[in-house]
Design a protein around this nucleic acid. Structure first.
Lengths: 249, 249
DNA sequence: TCAAAAGTGTTTGGGTTACACCCATGA
DNA sequence: TCATGGGTGTAACCCAAACACTTTTGA
């Protein structure tokens, strides 16, 4: 193979959608572009892939350079390769999403850090992002919604000790649905994924909640067998609302 | 951007897993490699992506060159980019699967045709394929299994008129599960996806089955709402089998 | 009349949904 | 004692699963 070959005029990059969870809200880490094209707009963290680097390695590198974190949940989502997606040339990009615990962010070490900022996902979806990053964000958010119903990955976003209510708020934020408290607890408990730590919250102005941690042993069982977090409540509620509306008209 | 830049030493390809269904068996179209590397091994049809060509366009082009078919169901699955996956250089490949009606294959028009051959998927999974194509095949077969539970895409693999039994065999071949005839019919009928053609099979040595076609209008409803083809039978059967085994020991 | 596949209903059980009140704590 | 969220059980319902015999046709 040689470099004069026109097939080698294409570059490829990795874009990394980094999700976090804080204050009951699902967040995504964006970077303000300091240079053209799209200077001043928010963009997903990403970089060209080195010639001797695997795709996942590149995704991990971007993540570590930006956040200092390693060994983070990472999943490839989709590859975007429209001819005109990058104004300066042909760049095909592979998107990944990763799930991090915002509690781990003591410092954001790299030079990127000054421009990086957490944004609520719902708000970021309304931004005009650089390149086709709005579509990428959308696609990855959908992939996360799907994954969370399929594998117990939600825990990747929570601190090591958490309350049931925090867990429920996390699922609600990701799936954009509200759950019944009792049914939610029943469902999660029946999965046997949680370990009761026999500890409680401190410093809260109300009855303190019990703390749980995620039980890795059970997790691996689901890795093999699959996991189903069925959600029909929202659909039914919606239907009933529409029937009501019809009846009232 | 310029061509001396080392980031432009990478090429992009698309590999296309073409599924068909015939004689109760799920098939995949493979090509025998006529040149090194991997000369003589079976490989997935694929090609480098032209510099001015979108990824999907490339996937469709490969499909059309090989089969003469256009407007075929096509879905991106995963991107494979291990540094050493191609012995002659860095080639990142985006995999797609497509679903075709084998009945449409009057001729296979291109020069590829003489080397292309349908293989039963289960057998092809045991082959040593060129490059990392065995992993790609596996990944795409899993993606198909998933998609078929999620959207009514099975019809893409059947001729325009088909019997209930053919449809059931198709689902069984894809999901590698056997279904109860009555439950299967009930489930499909409740989805209201089929149109009874008031015709029957001809020339069969037994009671002829009714012919159905797929009803596009209903389909679009599922496109929006989602579609669930839940399958628990297999799991339960497996569990019971294991309990039996335990009881007998 | 036989072979071969088509066609058809009902019961059971498990899991999801709906729903409301008391409890523990800090202020 | 009050405000705030924590924590708990039961009945109804729906859907998937299990299961066996009759029907229709061609040979």
């Amino acid at each position: 193979m040689n470099e004069q070959n026109p097939f080698f005029k294409t570059a490829f990059s990795v874009d990394n959608i980094i999700f976090g969870f804080d204050e009951g809200d699902l967040k995504v880490l964006l970077i303000e572009r300091g240079a053209a094209p799209f200077k001043g707009l928010w963009a997903l963290p990403g970089d060209l892939v080195y010639p001797n680097e695997d795709l996942e390695t590149a995704a991990n590198r971007i993540l570590e350079e930006l956040t200092g974190l390693r060994n983070v949940y990472l999943e490839q989502v989709h590859t975007f390769g429209a001819v005109d997606r990058h104004p300066l040339g042909r760049v095909i990009t592979v998107s990944y999403f990763s799930l991090v615990k915002i509690s781990d962010f003591a410092v954001m070490p790299s030079s990127f850090a000054k421009m990086a900022k957490w944004h609520s996902v719902t708000k970021a979806q309304e931004f005009k992002l650089a390149f086709d990053h709005d579509i990428i964000l959308d696609t990855c958010f959908n992939a996360l919604k799907h994954r969370v119903r399929t594998r117990p990955v939600g825990f990747e976003l929570l601190p090591p000790k958490f309350t049931f209510t925090e867990l429920q708020h996390l699922y609600e934020a990701i799936l954009e649905i509200e759950f019944d408290k009792r049914n939610f607890r029943k469902k999660i408990l029946s999965m046997n994924l949680l370990k009761d730590l026999n500890e409680v919250q401190e410093g809260v102005p109300h009855r303190p909640a019990k703390l749980y941690k995620f039980d890795k042993n059970k997790y691996s069982k689901f890795e093999a067998e699959g996991f189903s977090f069925e959600v029909k409540e929202a659909k039914k509620k919606e239907q009933r609302r529409m029937l009501q509306a019809l009846a009232n008209s």
